[in-house]
Write a protein that binds this DNA or RNA. Sequence first.
DNA 1: CGTGCCGTATCGCTGTACGATACAATCGTA
DNA 2: TACGATTGTATCGTACAGCGATACGGCACG
Lengths: 269, 269
Amino acid sequence: MRYIQRAEYGVRPTTHIDEDDPLFVQAIARALQVLSVFHESGKPLTLNEIGAAAGVGKSAAQRVVHTLRQLGYIERDANDRGYVPGIRILDHARDYLRLNPLVARASPVLMELRRNARERVDLSLRDDLRLIYAARLQSKRETFFATLIGQSVPIYCTSGGRAIMAHMGDAEVDDIIARSDRREITPKTITDPDQIRAKVREAREHGYALALEEILQGEIAIAAAILAADGTPLGAIHIAGSLSEWDADTFCRRFAPLVGEAAGAINRF
Amino acid sequence: MRYIQRAEYGVRPTTHIDEDDPLFVQAIARALQVLSVFHESGKPLTLNEIGAAAGVGKSAAQRVVHTLRQLGYIERDANDRGYVPGIRILDHARDYLRLNPLVARASPVLMELRRNARERVDLSLRDDLRLIYAARLQSKRETFFATLIGQSVPIYCTSGGRAIMAHMGDAEVDDIIARSDRREITPKTITDPDQIRAKVREAREHGYALALEEILQGEIAIAAAILAADGTPLGAIHIAGSLSEWDADTFCRRFAPLVGEAAGAINRF
DNA sequence: CGTGCCGTATCGCTGTACGATACAATCGTA
DNA sequence: TACGATTGTATCGTACAGCGATACGGCACG
């Protein structure tokens, strides 16, 4: 059996355990800490591995896993070789998407956009330094795992991220750049602060942002931001295509109006 | 702002709180109980509503919500009118899908199937009395909300469910029928035990199962089961189309071979 | 056939989480 | 603009839930 191992670029926020907040229930934190261990793992985990990775003792891991298992949030692996996340998690994912007003507003627009563009169309939501994909309408080309809901990418080096930063003040942009763990995900990833700022300025002028192979070799993506009523950027719409079928200029000329229009439609309700 | 209200047919298992298991951490159970409150709700909830619905006091709700909020599993609604599930949930959903070997095996086959069938293609996984959609490749027609990952449907009245029951013994089928809350979701939903059993026998003979408008008006679905190495049915592959474009016979003749082939490909690795 | 490491079970002590209650801020109605 | 209902927030002493060290049996590996 094969397990998908694709890394997540370490952009996930490390849940910093809160000191002595009298309302903070650490048993809950431990439970979610344990569940989060799977973020870093590409395979089923044993009790000891879970305990070690979560930074809790073996006994704690035992209790937590036992409890989560009763409730369906953790399962034994099919061949009894460790634990994996449980199916009940999907129930909550559905709740999240269903109750997120942005997703609700965006989804008909996305469908329409997908029909017109005939390329992959994504909706991503901002979570501090990263973007999390909340809706994905794939083209014929991709594999399912390349387009998982819940996948996350850094803000600093993505089209969507730059579209978002374009709607922020310089100070906030600098803060994001500074706090981001900027690594070269591909050889083309832009990690230099000044270059990033230049890209953001470019996005401000054009009203959309572009990224070329910064996350995935051969992929070109264009994005426009989605804004709250007060102008705060909350997420982005993306169109992604393959450089084997498009050159950057043509791609841009063709899809910039579409993605801009779609974002506009969402922003003014 | 509109919130999606579509009911879930009450098939979700009620987490029965375990009596006095010495390893059971009830603080964790309470937390997930609180999160699960959103399953039944179509709108943001206040602290009091959460406390009431989860069957815990207001103080408990306060602590739990506070904690989950710190960790990103609950958020304030955009217009400050209550709480909604938080985005961190999506991280876990991704983990689940990524680590589920069935999803991994099925996904390339599903993509291929979607290309050939040009109708909606789904993968669902069994959870006791219900099927939960784990992968959905929509056609042009649907809205995004009609095809959410995590949506669940009952086994007793769906094509996928009957495809699964076809691979069970009669006793187990009867048990499922007995324990299911059989309600008419549409006027066409089959709820009579004998008729269900007949449909299951039919599925056994054909190797695939059919359902006509039992969940959604105007929808026809065909499904084949996915099996573990020992023959236990774990889930199903579906193809779903619209009766405005297909009559049942044609649909069946066209897609039965495709869905059977796909399921076969998955079953023998 | 032994030796790891797996998951499971046990058991007193301590400190965590409990829930009643009181407070503050906000909304919406008149 | 003032009111009353409902929201989220803060406090506090006590009981018991969860802590973690440790010990057990079993399965899979060499």
